[in-house]
Amino acid sequence: MDLENQKRVKELSETHGAENVVVILGAAEGEASGIAAETVTAGDPTFAGPLTGVSLGLKVYHICEEEIKAEVDAGVYDEQVGMMEMVLNLDEIAAEMQSIRSQYTKF
């Protein structure tokens, strides 16, 4: 995850409390989603950014997961995400996200 984004996630967690923050990802692949999810839960696996060794344990979802889709107006979702739903490997992404959440999410 981009070093600046790590910094922003860290600051937002400090300001609002980690239990009140949900990170929503839009990565195009399972692996990339997993790395970003790991960064905001267990800490930066690449040991490069501000979240190195910082386990925020945040709630983290991909925009294409059912839990998030259910929260969004169906018309807006179709307009903004419908096309990508056709393109992405949704099962692979959901599996990766669930795996990271079950291991590292604290809330």
């Binding site: 195009a28 692949e29 692996e31 790395i35 096309m83 990508m84 056709m86 393109v87």
Partner: peptide, 20 residues
């Protein structure tokens, strides 16, 4: 590097829009 096949993703997106 975990960024996938960028052109292929773009073609899928353009194609998906054609389907829509």
């Amino acid at each position: 590097a975990g960024a996938g096949d960028v052109p292929e993703s773009n073609y899928k997106m353009i194609g998906a829009l054609a389907v829509k």
